[in-house]
């Protein structure tokens, strides 16, 4: 339990630093903005209390805002993402429910489940974030395009990271 908490705190720090120091310097053009720090919210254990998820998302968003000078835009998007996560998990739960040894990764839950889970949540986050960034609907379609493209970019990045760092966790079913 304590180890899980520490692991998540470490993930929080590493992903924040990675996002701020490295990823934000990757030039992919304005239509593919990488925001893979949301992996933290995706990777929170299934049994995490939903209020904790909400607060963790909020703090994560505030941290990003502090670095990117975006007021509370990341925080708003992250809180919505954390809120949605609970419902999305319910929606796409396997027939026998989640059990304690399971983790929300490709290796544990399979490609289809993880892709659905990640794509929906990342899109919610990015959609909110990019519209907040524009602060209006005046550039509706170009913003939508940015949100979609960035969702794809972030998803691909996160998917690769999963294979890079969680290979050893795999259990044979």
């Amino acid at each position: 339990m304590i180890i899980d908490v520490l692991k998540n705190i470490a993930r929080f720090l590493i992903l924040s630093l990675l996002q701020v120091l490295v990823i934000s310097h990757v030039p992919l053009g304005s239509h593919f903005v990488l925001l893979p720090y949301v992996l933290f919210i995706l990777m929170l254990p299934f049994e995490t209390p939903k209020i904790i998820v909400l607060f963790a998302s909020f703090v994560l968003g505030l941290t990003m805002d502090a670095f990117y000078d975006t007021g509370g835009m990341h925080a708003a998007a992250c809180v919505l993402m954390g809120f949605s996560r609970t419902h999305i998990l319910k929606l796409i739960s396997p027939r026998e429910g989640y059990d304690n040894v399971m983790k929300p990764t490709v290796q544990y839950m399979g490609k289809t489940w993880f892709s659905t889970y990640a794509l929906i949540l990342i899109f919610i986050h990015h959609f909110v974030f990019f519209y907040l960034e524009v602060f209006g609907f005046s550039e509706f379609f170009s913003t939508l395009l940015r949100a979609l493209g960035s969702t794809l970019a972030t998803f691909v990045f996160i998917y690769i990271v999963q294979f890079l760092f969680y290979r050893n966790d795999k259990i044979s079913i």
Binding site: G71, G72, A75
Partner: peptide, 22 residues
């Protein structure tokens, strides 16, 4: 519905921050 209200509270504070920063 405390979860939902907490969510609303956080979102509202986020928007307050955004408006303030603008």
């Amino acid at each position: 519905n405390h979860f939902f209200f907490l969510f609303l509270l956080l979102e509202v504070s986020c928007f307050v921050l955004i408006i303030q920063s603008r």
